[in-house]
């Protein structure tokens, strides 16, 4: 985990993404890059011809806030998706439905007693390009809350347990779904995600959600199977809003300073030597060779020797790791004994 620099996107990957040929994992990789890398975002948006943004109907022009109708809304909508537009990057929507991402965030603000101005939020979303003619792209859902200081995590391939755990920890969950599947609209032909809803609870047979076209107090219960089917349209895309990353206080098991059983000296050496060899294989593959002094430009390293040729000081580095590993196994309740004893 770590330490190397972020992998850059290859041209092939970007092209595959635009053609809709990426795996869910690859899709997520690209979308994460788009979140922070403007160049990538601009390039991809250009490639999928998102220039025709049109003007989002400004419901605030006369100073009135938007009123929403109760659900379900029968729309005669024809989706404006063309062949080149990706289901993952677009929310197909029309008129009042294109604000579902924003509405979900507003609902969360309402639940968290955060004051907000609907018109202001819509303006901010438009100005920052988080709101398009067709709605909010999946990777921007949560940006309004992020702006207010909340932490946002976006993830594909989530599952019901992820949702349950988040709700248990008082986090908010927005999922991307296909509304036609969710609400059982007859003859649904489209299967891509086109809608966002807030999940409030998960029961054995039903899921309780907030539908953004409804009033804040209204709830809808959807059969679990239907929910899963409509959620799968987005590869189970989930946005989590939370406040307290400090809530994660890692508590690694404390290693004590008691020396190891001397019977295990052979094992320590075995693990240490193997770790050294594994490390050496990687360095050699990178083109390193032995050199008396470390030089990263010339790719020289003084430790590229057989383990037996290393000094105690160098060996101790690997031995320490080996000892900690053995102690960890012990602390987790297991004994290590030589076979045949």
């Amino acid at each position: 985990m770590d330490i190397l620099s972020k992998p850059t996107l290859s041209d092939e990957l970007i092209a595959a993404f635009v053609d809709g040929r990426t795996t869910p994992k690859e899709t997520q990789q690209v979308l994460r890059a788009m979140l922070t890398d403007e160049e990538v975002r601009d390039l991809i948006e250009y490639m999928i011809r998102d220039n025709d943004m049109g003007d989002i109907e400004d419901e605030c022009e006369d100073g009135q806030t938007v009123s929403v109708s109760p659900l379900p809304v029968q729309t005669n909508k024809t989706t404006s998706l063309s062949e080149t537009q990706l289901p993952m990057a677009k929310m197909a929507a029309k008129s009042e439905e294109n604000l579902c991402g924003v509405r979900c965030e507003e609902f969360i603000m309402y639940k968290r007693n955060i004051p907000f101005d609907d018109c202001e939020l819509i303006q901010i979303a438009k100005a920052n390009n988080w709101l398009r003619k067709d709605g909010v792209p999946l990777f921007y859902i949560g940006e309004l809350l992020a702006r207010k200081g909340y932490y946002v995590m976006r993830r594909y391939e989530s599952n019901l347990d992820d949702i349950k755990r988040a709700i248990l920890e008082k986090e908010n969950v927005i999922v991307a779904v296909n509304s036609e599947i969710l609400y059982d609209k007859k003859d649904h032909k489209k299967t891509e995600p086109n809608h966002a809803v807030v999940v409030l609870s998960v029961g054995p047979d039903t899921v309780t959600i907030f539908e953004p076209l409804n009033k804040f107090e209204e709830r809808i219960q959807v059969p679990l199977a239907k929910f899963m089917l409509s959620w799968e349209a987005s590869h189970c895309y989930m946005v989590k809003i939370f406040t307290n990353p400090e809530g994660y206080t890692p508590q690694p098991i404390q290693m004590d300073s008691v020396p190891l059983n001397p019977d295990l000296t052979d094992l320590v050496e075995g693990i240490a030597e193997n770790a050294h060899d594994v490390w050496a294989v990687d360095r050699i593959e990178e083109g390193y060779t032995y050199g008396i002094k470390r030089d990263d430009d010339l790719k020289k390293h003084p430790d590229l020797l057989p383990y037996s040729a290393l000094t105690d000081k160098e060996k101790n580095y690997d031995r320490k790791m080996a000892i900690n590993t053995i102690k960890l196994v012990n602390l987790l309740g297991y004994d290590i004994v030589k076979k045949g004893n």
Partner: peptide
């Protein structure tokens, strides 16, 4: 592989 057993 190094010839040890791991057991409770």
């Amino acid at each position: 592989k190094l010839g040890f057993k791991i057991e409770r």
